[in-house]
Amino acid sequence: MTVRIDLLPKTKYVVPGNSACAGCGMMIGLKVLGMALGEEAVLSIPASCASVVQGLGPKSGVALPILNVPFASAASVATGMSEAFRQLGVKGQAVVWAGDGGTADIGFAAVSAAAERNSDVLYIMYDNEAYMNTGIQRSSETPKGAWTTTTPTGKREAKKDVALILLAHGVPYVATANIAYPQDFYRKIKRASEIRGFKFIHLFAPCPPGWLFDPSLTVEVARKAVETGVFILWEYDNGELKLNPPSSALVDKSRRKPLVEYLKLQGRYAHLSEDQIKQMEEEIDRKWQFLLRFAQAARPRA
């Protein structure tokens, strides 16, 4: 069910005049988190762009309860908050709002442990595909081929699929989301928060200065990632893995837009040759085939 735009809460959980860069994709996501869970969430935020965008104390640019915590600790801190709330009888949802580096790299052991324990935490990884806060260094979520300041000729290794790794932990809910589809993200947050246990959402969030595109194109880039098949919207719930629109209509490769429409918007891919782009396209299709086989396997029992 898509939520009608005019029925979304109007409270400003992202407060104007904060420290985010113009056109920050992550802030669109944070806004949606506020709309969906603003009165229930308590956030654990590790070192990241998300800690900086809050602006300068004693003001805060994010109107949510937030504990800023060390880089690798967010999932564990959220576990502690969640257990405290349970023991003290406080109704609320411990939420981690962490970047890709804090999740897939330095914080990964803690994320994996929280998932394995099935701690009652909603973990949202906003993925801007590099260490943006420190100035665009490569992370394990940087896609193959992308320029960063530490991969000046393009990253040679593939992007780590954290959502599938988390799914393999046997947690009750895993989904991907994209800031170009806020209502889909809103619905997924709402659904996840109904479930007790560990929930993981991988949120695709383009970064204008890091990906080298004009800030007006943030949503366009995010949308093109889905339309070209680079980023697949899916949801694992109740033991079933299914694709969400519009990805669900893009199973047939011919319905996807040419990859170059996504790549050409971003300076980080400007150096790629036609051969490299062709190879990327093949790899994207392999990713689709893998996910579809997974979806086939993860179907509800009759």
């Binding site: 407060v15 104007p16 904060n18 965008v53 602006g55 004693p58 805060s60 640019g61 994010v62 109107a63």
Partner: peptide, 14 residues
């Protein structure tokens, strides 16, 4: 501990 509360302009007159 020092705490912050929501207010516009936490990043200045942006």
């Amino acid at each position: 501990v020092p705490v912050s509360r929501p207010a516009p302009g936490s990043g200045g007159i942006t």
